Simulated assay, not measured.
Amino acid sequence: MNTARVMAVIPHRRPALLVDRIVTVEPRRRLVAQKAVTVAEPAYGRLGEDPADEHLAYPFGTLLESWAQCAVALACWEEPNPEVGKGKVVLLSQVRDARTLAPVYPGSVLVHEVTVVRDVGDTYLVTGRSTVDGVTVLEIGQVTLALRTADALTAAAAATVPTTDERS
């Protein structure tokens, strides 16, 4: 399943979309996806013309975000949400025991694996890892994802914004 299919499931778009294709999906159970790391990505935009190797390592935050987008795709698979302001929004509420085991460099193809540990209606506990050429580069102990309606989030946000009278 190509990038167009990924964008039909989750609201992320270029340059923030960090999933290229979904290889396998077992709804509510497991997902495997790929991401090709290239030097043309925004993470490398501020590097000079001849950066040292250690500066070319894919940033941890970007690596984690790429894996998390795969977790979002799994959570939304049966109810796609390509528009963040409508339908159910996936909130990443907790990340536990995430660690990198090896650097990732441009030219690598990440294989992200996400597995549901527990499905509690519209809250998922997931775990997983990312590999490059069969070598684990990222391990995720647990991530908690909560699906909430956009309307409920908008109402909750409006309730926390002070009125003009409350500000004075």
Rank of each mutant, 00 (worst) to 15 (best):
residue 100 T to V: 14
residue 83 E to P: 05
residue 40 A to R: 13
residue 100 T to D: 11
residue 137 V to R: 00
residue 95 V to Q: 10
residue 100 T to R: 06
residue 62 T to K: 09
residue 84 V to P: 04
residue 70 C to S: 08
residue 32 V to M: 05
residue 115 T to L: 12
residue 40 A to Q: 15
residue 81 N to V: 04
residue 121 G to Y: 03
residue 83 E to I: 12
residue 42 P to Q: 12
residue 109 V to L: 08
residue 61 G to C: 09
residue 37 V to M: 05
residue 53 D to W: 11
residue 47 L to E: 08
residue 127 T to E: 14
residue 57 A to C: 11
residue 138 L to E: 02
residue 113 E to N: 05
residue 44 Y to P: 04
residue 54 E to W: 12
residue 77 W to T: 00
residue 38 T to A: 09
residue 47 L to Y: 07
residue 105 Y to E: 10
residue 62 T to M: 15
residue 58 Y to G: 01
residue 75 A to E: 10
residue 70 C to A: 07
residue 96 R to S: 14
residue 107 G to V: 03
residue 121 G to M: 03
residue 33 A to I: 06
residue 87 G to Q: 01
residue 78 E to P: 00
residue 79 E to A: 13
residue 82 P to R: 01
residue 55 H to I: 12
residue 115 T to K: 12
residue 33 A to K: 01
residue 98 A to H: 07
residue 120 V to S: 15
residue 74 L to Y: 05
residue 122 D to G: 11
residue 111 V to S: 09
residue 73 A to R: 02
residue 114 V to I: 12
residue 48 G to N: 01
residue 116 V to N: 01
residue 131 T to S: 15
residue 98 A to E: 11
residue 102 A to M: 03
residue 92 L to V: 09
residue 124 Y to I: 10
residue 72 V to S: 01
residue 120 V to W: 14
residue 54 E to K: 10
residue 41 E to L: 07
residue 61 G to R: 03
residue 96 R to V: 15
residue 118 R to G: 14
residue 82 P to N: 05
residue 38 T to Y: 10
residue 121 G to K: 05
residue 39 V to H: 07
residue 66 S to F: 03
residue 102 A to H: 04
residue 54 E to Y: 13
residue 42 P to C: 12
residue 100 T to E: 14
residue 59 P to Q: 04
residue 107 G to D: 07
residue 117 V to R: 13
residue 86 K to H: 13
residue 76 C to I: 08
residue 121 G to W: 00
residue 76 C to P: 02
residue 134 G to F: 01
residue 85 G to V: 11
residue 128 G to I: 00
residue 46 R to L: 15
residue 101 L to G: 11
residue 90 V to P: 00
residue 108 S to Y: 08
residue 124 Y to H: 10
residue 100 T to W: 07
residue 99 R to S: 10
residue 95 V to K: 09
residue 93 S to C: 11
residue 107 G to C: 07
residue 92 L to D: 08
